[in-house]
Simulated scan of single mutants.
Amino acid sequence: MLSSEHVPSIFFNKSRSIDETNLYDGDIDEGGANKTPYDIIEHDVTTLAKANNLPPPDSFDALQLGSERLRTIIAALHCNILVRKEDLVRNLDYIANILEAVHQDETRRLMEEDDGALSEIEPDSVPNEVRDWLAMTFTRSMSTIKRRPSDKPKFKSVAQAIRAGIMVDRYLRRLSIDIKFKTINEWTFDVFSVNEFTSGQCLRYVGFELMQRYNLPNKLHISITALNNFLEQMESGYSKYRNPYHNLIHAADVLQTTYQIIYNSGLMNWLNDHELFAMFIAAIVHDFEHTGTSNNFHIQSRSDVALIYNDRAVLENHHVSAAFRLMRIDDYNILSEFTPEEFKNFRHLVIEMVLATDMSSHFA
């Protein structure tokens, strides 16, 4: 029998909500009050197998349920109560999705909070020396003013000045990038300007903007970290051969142009989330690791790539193959939550779209 001194402290946190808030344990019998801690933990372990109708990871109910299930797992492991591997993996994965949703919400909240804090700053509440410093930093209007040594600003609070400067800089950058992305569904979108503004990272910015615009990471359970890592590797691959044309700017341009066409033609309305995601990814990877030479060059020079793909759509096959090989690595696996059927359909769509960029297949 398991005595109270051998029960992990996590159990006592768990037990407070068993009768009040357990959403999935309605089948505890009326004699539950006479059960030992071991019996209750053993019973709760059986509920880990219940995977139907779970609250969405980004809901409030999911936070409560995830906390209860995590405590159940910890208590079971402490008491050497068997938890089936598939139940353990499924529940830990569900809890990880909850934490990821919380992280996204908190990140969004902090960003909005910073913007709100900036808008609440009253001009009169900002010390004169801070105002002067900001003016000198972000405008040229005071650059020609000659100050006497005695007029040199003396900050009463360096932290206040730095914080104000950071907030203004962040606000201006956010405002600038929002303005640049305002025309992302138009032909006039300036990808070169975005690339300059983002210090040569336009592909990840455009890619992430379009994914978030349609809430695809949340809808398709795509890890934000994996997506960011994947886009970063895409930029690295496009820069591998210092290609003057088939580079990351070209990839971002094709991605935006693809979006512009499906948006303004109305085709967007006929695509589901998985198809839209596949189209975005196909545009992103379509020239990944392009060598800067043509298919005919590879065929005539009998390059390794031509030998691997038997002289057929040599580069196009390499682009899509290299991208999928990258996705096999956990850090870049943006498809980890896809079912086998979803992965199969996604892969088919991406392969067909990328291979269709071989112009020789469109002309006799």
Score class of each variant (00 low, 15 high):
residue 1 M to V: 08
residue 4 S to H: 05
residue 9 S to T: 06
residue 12 F to I: 15
residue 15 S to H: 11
residue 16 R to N: 13
residue 20 E to Y: 07
residue 22 N to G: 08
residue 26 G to M: 00
residue 32 G to F: 14
residue 33 A to M: 11
residue 37 P to R: 09
residue 38 Y to F: 14
residue 39 D to Y: 03
residue 50 K to L: 10
residue 53 N to C: 10
residue 55 P to W: 01
residue 56 P to K: 04
residue 60 F to H: 08
residue 64 Q to L: 12
residue 67 S to M: 07
residue 67 S to I: 00
residue 68 E to W: 03
residue 74 I to Y: 08
residue 76 A to Q: 00
residue 77 L to H: 12
residue 77 L to T: 06
residue 84 R to V: 07
residue 84 R to W: 02
residue 86 E to L: 13
residue 87 D to L: 05
residue 91 N to W: 01
residue 91 N to P: 00
residue 92 L to W: 00
residue 92 L to T: 08
residue 94 Y to S: 10
residue 95 I to E: 08
residue 96 A to R: 04
residue 97 N to G: 05
residue 97 N to V: 02
residue 98 I to P: 06
residue 102 V to Y: 02
residue 107 T to P: 00
residue 109 R to L: 05
residue 110 L to N: 06
residue 112 E to I: 04
residue 112 E to F: 04
residue 117 A to I: 10
residue 120 E to N: 13
residue 125 S to K: 13
residue 126 V to C: 05
residue 134 L to F: 00
residue 136 M to K: 15
residue 140 R to Y: 04
residue 143 S to V: 08
residue 148 R to M: 11
residue 150 S to I: 15
residue 150 S to D: 14
residue 153 P to L: 08
residue 154 K to N: 14
residue 158 V to T: 12
residue 159 A to S: 13
residue 160 Q to D: 15
residue 163 R to Q: 11
residue 166 I to A: 13
residue 167 M to K: 07
residue 176 S to A: 15
residue 178 D to T: 05
residue 180 K to N: 08
residue 184 I to A: 08
residue 185 N to P: 00
residue 185 N to L: 05
residue 185 N to H: 09
residue 187 W to T: 09
residue 191 V to Y: 03
residue 192 F to Y: 11
residue 192 F to G: 00
residue 194 V to D: 06
residue 199 S to R: 07
residue 201 Q to K: 12
residue 206 V to K: 03
residue 214 Y to P: 00
residue 220 L to I: 10
residue 222 I to Y: 01
residue 222 I to K: 03
residue 228 N to L: 05
residue 229 N to L: 03
residue 229 N to S: 14
residue 234 M to P: 04
residue 235 E to T: 00
residue 235 E to G: 11
residue 236 S to Q: 06
residue 236 S to M: 02
residue 237 G to S: 08
residue 238 Y to T: 06
residue 240 K to C: 12
residue 242 R to W: 02
residue 244 P to V: 00
residue 248 L to M: 05
residue 250 H to T: 09
residue 254 V to F: 07
residue 254 V to S: 14
residue 255 L to M: 12
residue 255 L to R: 03
residue 265 S to N: 12
residue 266 G to W: 03
residue 268 M to I: 10
residue 268 M to D: 05
residue 268 M to G: 01
residue 269 N to S: 13
residue 271 L to S: 05
residue 282 A to I: 06
residue 283 A to C: 10
residue 284 I to Q: 07
residue 285 V to I: 15
residue 288 F to I: 10
residue 288 F to Y: 15
residue 290 H to T: 10
residue 293 T to C: 10
residue 294 S to G: 03
residue 294 S to N: 12
residue 294 S to K: 11
residue 298 H to K: 11
residue 299 I to D: 03
residue 300 Q to R: 14
residue 302 R to Q: 13
residue 302 R to D: 12
residue 305 V to P: 01
residue 305 V to M: 10
residue 315 L to R: 06
residue 317 N to Y: 02
residue 319 H to M: 07
residue 319 H to D: 15
residue 320 V to W: 01
residue 325 R to Y: 01
residue 333 N to V: 09
residue 337 E to Q: 09
residue 343 F to Q: 05
residue 345 N to F: 04
residue 348 H to D: 14
residue 348 H to Q: 15
residue 350 V to T: 09
residue 350 V to M: 08
residue 354 V to S: 01
residue 356 A to W: 02
residue 361 S to V: 13
